[in-house]
């Protein structure tokens, strides 16, 4: 059954991808991209990758669509026709695709226990996670501890992405310059306003649950940051730009990113000061297992803060340009 589901969803995914490439209307492309994200999340879920699926859900369900629409408001709706077809590029792409398809013939079958990926470090992670960390979610253990350096790099990528967007869009959070049109948001729409205000606390609460439950179930900093950012973006949509910036100022969002990245790096430095190596959490507590748990919770918090702040900053940078 799992194969049928997987093949069906993958076919829909390919069709959607072709439609995105083919369409000239950018609004339609944004909507199809939302569909692509939904199908992708369902696919990940069918393949038992709940953490990845939750990330796709948290980012794709709200934030991506909102930010793409904000970007679309700054540009034209229809893609300009490019000139003649570049045959050399087409040839290069076609040859690359053929080589890649040929390369897949050597790949092991789905779920093959003898596949190299299941023989390399994965068994060691599975075996050692209960011994070293004593937490049920191996994904979190790998992400936050075994592969802590990679995740630190990702947090800095998020940080750099925010800095880049702010540079390009001149993101002063709408503070400088008179705002000509006060943005009413959706305040005149009663039903979204009531439902949105009702759901907002639940979204934030769920985000916190995902943040601190990441050691036990699917979740962690990335997902929680995106969910909380979605909640605050919902607030901005409902109440308007200015009201949202009054409750969470642009400076606070940027400070959140810096604080999150510093918290992650700071945990690493603290480990060094206590005599371990960088991001070796076992020295944080007399009992190494507890120390590693403390370290994982701390750096997940840093990740969550950084992601939440960066997504909000990017959203407000786009929205400030709109008005």
């Amino acid at each position: 059954m799992i194969t049928v589901f997987g093949i069906f969803l993958l076919s829909l995914l390919v069709i959607t991808a072709l439609a995105i490439v083919q369409t000239r209307n950018l609004f339609v492309a944004v909507m199809l991209a939302a569909i692509f994200s939904l199908l992708m999340a369902a696919n990940f879920f069918i393949l038992d990758a709940a953490d990845v699926a939750l990330t796709e859900a948290a980012v794709g369900a709200g934030v991506t669509t909102v930010i793409l629409l904000s970007a679309l408001a700054l540009t034209a709706e229809r893609e300009k026709r490019s000139g003649s077809i570049r045959w050399i590029s087409v040839a290069v792409v076609a040859v690359t695709v053929l080589i890649l398809i040929y390369a897949t013939f050597d790949k092991p079958a789905l779920g093959d226990p003898d596949a190299p990926v299941h023989q390399h470090v994965a068994p060691w992670y599975l075996e050692k996670t209960p011994v070293f960390m004593d937490i049920p979610n191996v994904v979190t253990a790998v992400l936050a501890s075994f592969r802590g350096y990679d995740t630190l790099g990702e947090v800095f990528v998020v940080f750099v992405a925010m800095v880049g967007v702010l540079f390009v869009l001149g993101g002063d959070g709408g503070r400088s310059g008179p705002i000509t049109t006060p943005d009413p948001g959706l305040r005149h729409h009663l039903i979204p306003k009531v439902v949105g205000r009702l759901l907002l606390p639940f979204i934030i609460l769920f985000g916190l649950y995902v943040q601190f439950h990441g050691e036990y179930g699917p979740g962690g900093g990335f997902q929680a940051g995106a969910i909380i950012a979605t909640g605050l973006i919902l607030h901005a949509l409902l109440e308007g730009e200015q009201a949202a910036l009054r409750s969470v100022p642009a400076g606070a969002m940027q400070a959140l990113v810096v604080a999150g990245a510093s918290l992650y790096g700071g945990v690493g430095v603290a480990c060094m000061l206590l005599g371990g190596s960088f991001l070796d959490y076992s020295v944080l507590h007399p009992d190494p297992v507890t120390g590693r748990q403390i370290g994982i919770i701390a750096i997940e918090l840093g990740v969550g803060m950084a992601v939440c702040g960066a997504l909000l900053s990017i959203f407000h940078a786009f929205a400030a340009r709109e008005h």
Binding site: A34, F45, L54, L199, F202, V210, P218, L237
Partner: peptide, 17 residues
């Protein structure tokens, strides 16, 4: 939890539209 996440935040996209 995944379904719960979607149930909570899926309508934000349509509100943005």
């Amino acid at each position: 939890d995944l379904a719960l996440a979607y149930a909570l935040i899926n309508f934000v996209g349509v509100l943005a539209v």
